[in-house]
């Protein structure tokens, strides 16, 4: 089994794109249905949500408030999963409910350490 990170990107800045509390509840329930399905197969390793606040550090001591000004695809959160290969990891990631929203993306990457990097 290999480990993969599933990075969820969506627009968390534009006011009109933000869900109401009721919608949010539905989204969270769908999110947990998806993660619960992965965890039920014993393929969930860990995961975390991210605060909307943040700083971006750049070359030459430049610091900005978050990465969002330049993109509508902020990292909203990520989970780590176990799968036998990229193909299986992708099939698990396909169930991610944020994919129901236009413009949102999910990126799947295998976790490799310096030791087993080819």
């Amino acid at each position: 089994m290999e480990e993969f990170i599933v990075i969820m990107r969506l627009d968390i800045l534009t006011k009109e794109a933000q869900p109401s509390p009721e919608q949010m509840q539905v989204y969270m329930q769908r999110y947990h249905d998806w993660v619960g399905g992965i965890a039920a197969q014993d393929k969930f390793v860990g995961g975390t949500g991210l605060s909307k606040e943040g700083k971006v550090l750049k070359f030459n001591d430049v610091m900005t408030d978050g990465p969002y000004a330049e993109t509508k695809e902020s990292i909203a959160g990520f989970i780590t999963i176990r799968a036998k290969d990229l193909e299986e990891a992708v099939s698990l990631a396909k169930g991610c409910p944020i994919l129901k929203g236009e413009g949102n993306t999910v990126e799947v990457r295998q976790i490799v350490t310096g030791h087993n990097k080819v």
Partner: peptide, 21 residues
Amino acid sequence: LYFYNRLLQIAYSPIAALNRT
């Protein structure tokens, strides 16, 4: 279902997976 989804994320067990399903 919600509680099992959350439970499985912190403590997997076959019986919890079956009950969740």
